[in-house]
Design a protein around this nucleic acid. Sequence first.
RNA 1: AGAUCCGUAGCUCAGUUGGUUAGAGCGCUACACUGAUAAUGUAGAGGUCCCCAGUUCAAAUCUGGGCGGGUCUACCA
Length: 1134
Amino acid sequence: MSLKYREFSQLNLPSVDQEILSKWQEEQAFEKSVELRDGATPFVFYEGPPSANGMPGIHHVISRTLKDLVCRYKTMQGFQVKRKGGWDTHGLPVELGVEKELGITKEDIGKKISVEAYNQKCREAVLRFKDKWDDITQKMGYWVDLNNPYITFENNYIESLWWLLKQMYKKGLLYESVSIQPYSPAAGTGLSSHELNQPGTYKDVKDTSATVMFRAAQDEKSKFLHDAVHGAEVFFMAWTTTPWTLPSNLGLTVGPNIEYALVQTFNPYTHLPINVVLAKDLISKYLKAEGENGDFDGYNGEQKLIPWKTVATFKGSQLEGLHYEQLLPYEANSIEEVKRITPDADPFRIIVGDFVTTEDGTGIVHTAPAFGADDYKVGKKFNIGIITMVDREGKFVDGLGEFSNRYVKNYKDDPEYADVNVDICVKLKKENRAFKVEKYEHSYPHCWRTDKPILYYPLDAWFIKTTALKDRMVELNKTINWKPKSTGEGRFGNWLENMVDWNLSRSRYWGTPLPVWRTEDGEEEICIGSVEELLQEAEKAKQALGGDVNASISKEKLDLHKPFVDSIVLVSASGKPMKRVADLIDVWFDSGAMPYAQWHFPFENVQTFAQNYPADFIAEGVDQTRGWFYTLHAIGSLVKESVQEELKKHGVEVNDQKYPGLAYKTVVSNGLVLDKNGNKMSKRLGNVVDPFQTIQTYGADATRWYLITNASPWDNLKFDIEGIKEVQRKFFGTLYNTYQFFVLYANVDGFTFKEEYIPVDQRPEIDRWILSSLNTLIKQVTEAMDDYEPTQAGRLIETFTDEHLSNWYVRLCRRRFWKGEYEHDKICAYQTLYECLVTVAKLMAPVSPFFSDLLYRNLNQVTQLNNETSVHHTLYPVADVAKMDAGLEERMQLAQDASSLVLSLRKKVNIKVRQPLQKVLIPVLNPAMKEQLQKVEDLIRNEVNVKEIEYLTPDNTFIKKKIKPNFQVLGKKLGGKMKAVATALGNFSQEQIAELEKEGVYNLLVDNENLPLYLTDVDIMSEDVPGWMVASNSNITVALDVTVTPELLNEGNARELVNRIQKIRKDSNFELTDRITVKISGHPELTPAITQFKSYICAEILADNLEEDPALQDGVDVEVNDHLIKVQVSKKGG
RNA sequence: AGAUCCGUAGCUCAGUUGGUUAGAGCGCUACACUGAUAAUGUAGAGGUCCCCAGUUCAAAUCUGGGCGGGUCUACCA
């Protein structure tokens, strides 16, 4: 323990980081911060697992700062906050990285490289940058337990996932179905949504689009159409940008509430008379308005203008159920084939769907269920069947006549390729089945690997029936505290409302295998929920099937990944072998299941799980809204009952109140980090900020503080290094200076807080003021932090430190620290400033853990007021209401305003502050204001160097006043007459104002109406004091006497001289306490000042002797108010 | 295309329930101050509060409609 506070030569934040980090390491500070709270109420935090196969970026620093500051804050509030780290290790990014590294594609897996070797590569790759992550975690000061992290590829973790999946399976929530997915025929593989989101995936392409005509069948249902045109043919018009899907057409979808028209006209290509149905609003897209009711008889195909007329109109719903003739009938898509594939189907029918719009096309949508998600959905609903006339290579199947085996797009880079879409259109034109064919430009997704257009293709997939739990998820979401609120209600709420079943399966290699085994005919299957069950079933199969089935399976060598699990064969109830279905599951299931799997629930740690569910707080980037935030929420809802049962089995008391299946109570979603120009950071643009470099250069604290205080975390942050520099200078620099100031004098005076704590009411006004402000600050910061608004909290601390503590309290109190004896007033000052510094250190500790700890340690190691060695082990300050005094803060504001105004007046007439002036006049509007001002009078006088303050009371006629309506009060009362009254008040004379003030009421005549005005209806301000220099703001007006009398001038000269000699002292590197003797060459203009203020001067400069010596030769040349003199300063005894 | 957030000084951001001189910091310019000195003070320049319409006595603020930017989801004829 040292009795001296540590002094610094300069502020170096990066070296502060180093020093504090090693302290933390030495003291095991993080571990201790958790242990210290043993037995305290837990605050549960979930760490969203990062994927360590890429380098951490600056955006990771912001979300981790957010997590860290909340956890630190809660710890300081007395909660125990355990923070188990985790690593997300599965999934596509890992695989793609490995493929790139090995120079292979997905197709090569199993051929050029075995699945086993491939997965081994993935396993190695996944933690490749773990060191870097650990490094940034430490350097940024993120406290998280990385010694016992959960890792998603571990068997225990996967086993928990299997258990969860089995619970869903048992409830019928896990099912297999066909879904329409993006598929790349060129690459022969389905694409994940992630792959579709690669940059450059969507390209503008020109495709052949066609508006084609489906002939209505003639039957009872369509009678009303045919009757309208006297039995002639009727066609339904539909538009497509993918003519190749037409052979797979099975339905036409109309909007139930859209108005359709039956129009009589001619086919532009064949010139034959036709009757077509399309949305009424879209007629104009196909037929010119001038042609309406045109000359039908005279039309022969030569005319540009095609005549048309509307024969009938009706709602889409009236068309439902009508049949039409197939457009392109062949063997492969014959009705018999359709019925063979989908036996109960009723195709070639008009169906209704809400997704139909009249924005483009004809309002009638060609529906090929195989090639569009909407088509598939609506097709399924109305049971029109499904046929897939394109194979997985992207070419038409056999049995489609001249189109058989032709590629629907040029997937093979064939220079001879002829666009089959064009040929289809030509054929339709010839057959009087095309109304319009044109090139159409639109953006279309392409396979990022082959650059070829993808198509939407029906593929088998496993789903979780999240829609079954939709109501629960919507309800639970309402109980979540979302920051910001709009993300929860809007983005997430809408997402829940429009939820579809979770497409769980992925046909990849490195991930959690789907634990479903089934027989070859697909009749029997089993879902495995634990390793034990798997081993039992494997053993059963070994017995039943014999041979070398499962011969090499043992618990010790088990790896729950491909290809090992795939080698396990199970046996069905009827004795047939069952193989695992090939799919893996979505990695988002991995992370969403972390509340359970991190504890290997329910196989171990059931109690631990119970204590750590749900999370009190989670935080990630807003991009996780439909990622992790969703999967956590969904899984929580899905397995609620199963988990409840499991907990009950272990004697944990649960019910729906205690365990509603809610995964997290508060979630903060932070925005993106953009570059300073607002562009997304990308390697391509080269605008990526390296967090290591940033932290190393500016320190973790400045970086963290900047990230948190610059903008609310959920707003996008335009990251600008200049901002960090500003934070460093302005906030940390100021705080450091304040600390330096404190220790400079505390070390001289030996202040160690050994004296009794002086009751606040025995301290001077300014001490009580800063302590009041400090406690107000504590209150506000605590409120902001409790509300998860760290930006507000940080800004408040900043304002306090800079404006109140440094630029007012310290500035005004400087003399108290260096002047006088070590007595009551001085001790008050030290105790007050010390309290402020320690409290600020604690308040800021969650956001900037390094500097705050340094500050705290340096202060506390001398005073030993706290037992805790680290600020992070202390308790967060609690506002002391007794120390808060609103009136005091208000009058200090008045003092600041008044001082600032006087200083601005001095500036105007160019009289420096060192020159004393005689008097300031302050008009006061009421006794209360006068009383307030009188209490801070000394402060103002000192600050602006004025001898006296005189108050002008309202009743004097000296001041000129201004009157203004109090709009808020008067507006409500007057309404429409407000304007007239405002004008009238603007023209008020001084006498009228005086009358109102005197009588308390004034009868104003507006539009021949008497309106009584009361004092509360108006604001009266002093505007001017004739003959004086005046300045005013909205609160206060000051008038300054700028006459410099000879006495004042002498005093000013004396002060100037003091200032010069102080500078010499400093330049000569004298100690603050050194006594000196001074000789001055003298000057007639200055002699009176020296004589008159000798004792004052001597006291100020610690001189024992001061004399004028006109003959002085050696000395420093100085200038005092334009007079040149020589000054010789010598240290006594030196 | 839908959802959502955002648009205030050159830059980064405040702006409470609508209330009349729209603020701060940075930057720039000038002048001061200096026993905290990589600090500080004062002043100046700098605004169509994105646009239009509406509600209101009164709109940066509320409503509607645009425009621009970000993000997410989707891409369906």
